[in-house]
Amino acid sequence: MNESHRSSVHQALGGGQVADVLLWRRRVGSVFILVASTSLWLLFERAGYNILSFVSNVLLLLVVILFLWAKCASLLNRPLPPLPNLEISQEYVLVLADTIQPIVNCVLSVAREIAVDGNLKLFLKVAFGLWVISFIGSFFNFITLVYLGILVSLSLPALYEKYQDPVDDKLTVAHKMIETQCRSFDDKILRRIKMPFQKEKKI
């Protein structure tokens, strides 16, 4: 595959360190995320450990270590724990807000088109998408869904980058077929909705 395709996939994922991890260009980070997520999933799902208890115990252990370290440092004239500046900078908040703003605006735009403009096609698409999410969620709990999402994120982008040309051809054909079916389905629904209003009342 040529380099333009590889760079396009990398840029589509943001072009930063996250994209490098998802495409396995930073193998250490990718392996760490895979091993850590698998270990946590096995801990919570197979060992039956509770996530609230796990977080509480980890924080308790961390607080105890820091407290004992600080006490020992004051008694032995040793340096205190090298903690960073524990505060969120205004620049980071602005960057986070700029990242979230387009997503929120997109959701609000979709909600406006459904609630105010009465866009039936968009309503059917959103309703079908939410039903699919609810149907899939009925088979798995939240932790398993997150773990499956991590596995998909670490596998699909790398596979797509490797086999981009044949996948694009298949997706183009599938998109045309789905678009044709959805258009005919929407036309049938719209025709059924409009028919009762077009009938004249019998005297």
Rank of each mutant, 00 (worst) to 15 (best):
N2F: 04
E3P: 08
R6F: 02
S8H: 10
V9S: 01
A12F: 04
A12M: 10
V21K: 00
V21I: 13
R27D: 03
V31T: 07
F32Q: 12
I33E: 00
A36Q: 05
S39Q: 07
L42K: 01
R46K: 08
R46N: 12
V55P: 00
V55I: 09
L60R: 15
L62F: 03
V63L: 15
F67V: 13
A70Y: 04
P79V: 11
P79G: 06
L83A: 07
L83G: 03
V93Y: 06
V93H: 01
V95S: 14
V95F: 11
V95Y: 05
A97M: 14
A97E: 14
L108H: 10
L108T: 11
S109P: 00
D117C: 07
D117L: 06
K121C: 07
F123Y: 12
L124T: 08
K125E: 13
F128L: 14
L130Q: 12
L130G: 10
L130H: 00
V132L: 15
I133Q: 14
S134F: 06
G137I: 02
S138N: 08
S138L: 12
S138Q: 13
S138E: 04
T144D: 01
L145H: 02
L145R: 09
V146A: 10
Y147H: 13
G149A: 03
L154R: 03
P157D: 03
Y160K: 02
Y163C: 03
Q164N: 08
P166A: 04
V167P: 00
K170H: 09
K170E: 15
L171M: 09
A174G: 02
M177A: 13
T180L: 12
C182P: 01
F185M: 04
K201G: 05
K201D: 08
K202H: 07
